[in-house]
Amino acid sequence: MGDLVAVFVIWLVAGGLAEWATVSWINSGPWDSGPYFYVASNLGTVGLHAFDFLLEFAVAIFMLVVVMIAYSAVRFRVRRGERPSQAPSQSRYNGTFVGVWIVGSIVLNLLFWIHPTASGLEAVYAAQLPQNNKNALIVDVAARQWEWIFSYPQYGIQQAVNNQGFDALWLPVNRPVEFVLKSYDPAHNYENIDYVIHSFWIPAFGVKEDVVPGQTRYLYLIPTHITSTKTNEMVRVQCAEVCGGGHPYMEADVHVVTPQAFAAWVQHQKHLQASILNLEGIVGDES
């Protein structure tokens, strides 16, 4: 009995310290992003809450098992100078221990599956319903080897680029976005044999979706904070599925801005696009 009490007390103390550290971690970072370090979307928040919940339980379970192992290894060891002998107790079964263990692990796993897994998925699915995304900004995303191409059909922007000509994703804050994800190459749309699987990932948004050749996928989310790649490099589009040699370079800058700044950016893009089209028109005339 004494050993059991000792294990329990050590677990309470060590586990309590570990939980205190865990809670401090959970409450750290901008907007309490904690273990996710930087979360700026509604879907990311769902994942983060699930993570925080599981982390608190996982730390407690981890400490319990480690304390049991470490306590046994120290307390029941053959000490220096002692001769090894048969253990005094040869108990081969203990219904209470086995029962508590098995029932406990089943209950915990069912709990984890109901919350946060099923409940979190409910939240994710609800966020994907079109009726919950009225007035969504549509962004067509084409993933090719190796580039993300963003177009905004509602604003007639064919390929959004920054001033250096690199692809860039601009989003207004707090407005739902509908990403329409396809894996194809607008410039070589006859070579569909070479299309591969990519994965559309914005680390700061806490979500990724695979982009599979021959399929169109939809992802709805709401950016919740004004930020940009310059503010934090987790705010970037990154390919998360290996897609060949250019995989590491398959990234793009992201800007989450105020609606006013977004409107100004749209005008700028239209202007930019018109000048490119004019340029192409001139070249076309000469040939």
Partner: peptide
Amino acid sequence: LWRSRLQV
């Protein structure tokens, strides 16, 4: 491990 005579 519990109540054994463990040679570490």
